[in-house]
Amino acid sequence: MTSALQAIANLLPQLSGGERAQLLQWVAQDLGDLAPGVEVHPLVCGGEPCIVRTRIPVWVLEQARRQGLNDGEILRCYPSLRAEDLVNAWAYVRRHRSEVEGQINENEAL
């Protein structure tokens, strides 16, 4: 267990029921922003959101979709992807549309 998790585990018994409920709300809110299957790592693809297990940025997949490729065609172009990866990518795009738009625009300008 990491030291941060251990610290939380040690503090948890000291919290009142209301404080625990507040903590749970914060955690649930934080988890709501996560996109399963999409990761951001500063040393992978310049820190752009990518599909886990790959170095395929989400913006690349969204750009392909905008250019008319359907999911089947995208999966054929990227054999390491699974249908589940595209579901996760599209969910990420819905939640972070302006971020993805910016990444597409930046890369089109190059």
Score class of each variant (00 low, 15 high):
Trp59Glu: 02
Cys77Val: 11
Val38Ala: 03
Ala109Tyr: 03
Ala64Asn: 11
Ala35Thr: 13
Val38Asp: 01
Val40Lys: 07
Trp59Ile: 00
Gly37Glu: 05
Glu19Ser: 13
Arg53Val: 00
Gly102Asp: 01
Leu69Met: 13
Gln6Ile: 14
Glu19Trp: 07
Trp90Asp: 08
Leu12Ser: 07
Asp85Gly: 04
Arg82His: 04
Asn105Thr: 06
Ala109Lys: 07
Gly32Phe: 03
Pro79Thr: 11
Tyr78Cys: 08
Leu75Ser: 09
Trp26Ile: 11
Cys45Ser: 14
Trp26Val: 12
Arg94Ser: 12
Gln6Trp: 14
Val44Gly: 00
Gln25Tyr: 07
Ala83Ile: 05
Gln29Val: 11
Leu5Tyr: 09
Arg82Met: 04
Ala35Cys: 11
Met1Cys: 04
Gln67Pro: 02
Asn88Gly: 11
Leu23Asn: 01
Arg55Cys: 08
Asn105Gly: 05
Val100Phe: 00
Gly46Leu: 02
Arg76Asp: 06
Gln63Ile: 00
Asn10Gly: 14
Ala83Ser: 14
Glu84Gln: 15
Ala109Ile: 01
Ser98Val: 01
Arg55His: 09
Gly102Ser: 04
Ala9Lys: 15
His96Ile: 06
Arg55Tyr: 09
Asn88Gln: 09
His96Pro: 03
Val100Gly: 00
Gly46Arg: 03
Ile8His: 07
Ile104Asp: 00
Leu24Cys: 10
Cys77Ser: 14
Glu39His: 10
Asn107Ile: 04
Leu12Asp: 05
Gly32Ile: 06
Leu110Asp: 10
Ala9Asp: 13
Asp33Gly: 14
Ile56Glu: 00
Pro13Ser: 11
Trp59Phe: 11
Met1Val: 05
Tyr92Glu: 03
Leu75Asp: 06
Val40Pro: 01
Gly68Asn: 07
